[in-house]
Simulated scan of single mutants.
Amino acid sequence: MAEAGFSVTVPATTANLGPGFDHLGLALSLKMKIEATPALAWFIQYHDKEYASLPTDETNLIVQTIQQTAARYDQAVAPQKLVVYSDIPLGKGLGSSATAIAAGIEIANELADLQLSKLDKLCIGSEMEGHADNVTAALLGGMTVSYFTEEEMEVLTFPAPPIGVVIMVPPVALKTETSRGLLPEYLTHKEAIRGSAAGSLMTAAIANSDWVTAGRMMERDIYHEPYRKIGFPNFDEIRSACREVGAYGMTISGAGPSLFIAVPPETEQQVAALLDQRFPHYQAIAMQPAENGACVTK
């Protein structure tokens, strides 16, 4: 059992990239770092004001994940003080809940000496999230493509792609449950085939570093964009502006409400500045894909 303090660093993520709905994730260069030290009772201290509304006791998602992960293996963990530093916008489509879950799994693994395999961690995180896209990328880094059911899990990983990323963050957060409530219960067989083809071609294009084709396919999503785009002010205008400045493609980041824009490498700062000026009610953040996933430092 771990007694001395340690830290866990986990990247932000974006999910779907359009038609890769619920199975494609990409780690991003924004990060959450959690320092864990023994304490008499569980206490979470957030250093970022945006997280001030979150619970700081055992009801916190990170603590719940730690306890549930340990309990799966009939282990209990001693209380900790968790000091959290994060530059990941909360509830804005950048996998903040998946980051918390990934961190909790890693902390439980360390505190209870569970010696979990990568697949163990991926299965636990995906079960807790209900889908595999964000949490696999948070745990492994790079880009992940997952097949996940109650009985089976398969994950392929790709290195972080050589692109720049711009995230357009709106001023209002959107709960994932609300966003999922906008989706239809069914698609026709013909629609499903079209969506699957777009996702397959996009993934193949990314694997071949063909981001021109990948960007086009990002914008061919039929699974969620048509139903969720109504919640984004100036959605079509932003997409047109992205094309004007040479972006590969633009789509909704995860369940929203942020937008993910793939751009040629080393242009993300310039594109972010242009979009920030043109759409001031959004915050344009320049970043890159992240190679590394969750990491423990002693």
Results as ranks from 00 to 15, higher is better:
Lys92Asp: 07
Leu26Gly: 04
Glu50Ala: 15
Leu90Gln: 05
Ile88Arg: 05
Pro38Thr: 03
Lys118Tyr: 12
Met32Tyr: 00
Val84Pro: 06
Lys33Ala: 08
Leu61Ile: 13
Ser126Pro: 11
Ala76Val: 14
Phe43Cys: 10
Asp113Gln: 07
Pro19Ala: 10
Ser126Asp: 04
His23Gln: 14
Ser97Trp: 00
Pro11Phe: 03
Pro89Ala: 11
Leu116His: 01
Gly95Lys: 02
Glu50Met: 08
Leu122Gln: 15
Leu28Ala: 09
Leu94Val: 00
Trp42Leu: 06
Leu61Cys: 01
Phe43Thr: 05
Cys123Glu: 15
Ser96Thr: 00
Ala39Asp: 14
Leu94Trp: 02
Leu40Gly: 15
Gln68Asp: 14
Leu116Arg: 05
Ser86Asp: 03
Ile34Asp: 00
Gln45Met: 00
Asp22His: 10
Gly93Ala: 09
Asp74Met: 07
Arg72Asp: 14
Ser126Trp: 08
Tyr46Arg: 09
Thr59Ala: 15
Leu94Cys: 06
Pro19Phe: 02
Pro19His: 06
Asp120Lys: 07
Lys81Thr: 15
Ala98Gly: 07
Asp22Pro: 08
Gln64Cys: 06
Gly95Phe: 12
Val63Trp: 00
Leu24Ile: 15
Gly125Phe: 03
Gly25Arg: 12
Val84Lys: 06
Asn109Tyr: 02
Gly93Gln: 08
Leu82Phe: 09
Leu26Glu: 07
Leu24Glu: 01
Gly93Ser: 11
Thr99Val: 15
Gly93Phe: 13
Asp87Gln: 06
Leu119Thr: 15
Ile34Gln: 07
Val77Gln: 06
Ala112Trp: 08
Asp74Ser: 15
Ala15Arg: 01
Leu24Trp: 02
Glu58Pro: 04
Pro55Asn: 12
Ile44Tyr: 10
Pro11His: 01
Thr9Trp: 03
Ala12Phe: 02
Gly93Thr: 00
Ile105Glu: 06
Ala78Cys: 03
Glu110Ser: 03
Thr14Arg: 11
Pro11Ile: 00
Ala112Leu: 09
Gly95Pro: 07
Ala15Cys: 11
Leu61Met: 14
Tyr85Met: 10
Asn16Gly: 03
Gly20Gln: 04
Ile62His: 05
Leu54Ser: 04
Glu106Phe: 08
Ala76Tyr: 08
Ala36Glu: 05
Ser117Met: 09
Gly95Glu: 11
Val63Met: 07
Asp74Lys: 14
Leu119Cys: 09
Tyr46Gly: 10
Lys49Tyr: 01
Glu35Thr: 15
Ile107Leu: 10
Thr59Pro: 06
Lys31Cys: 13
Ala112Lys: 08
Gly25Val: 00
Asp120Val: 06
Lys33Val: 12
Val10Cys: 09
His47Lys: 13
Gln68Ala: 15
Ala12Tyr: 00
Ala71Gly: 13
Ala15Trp: 01
Lys31Gln: 14
Val8Gln: 07
Val83Ala: 13
Ala108Ile: 04
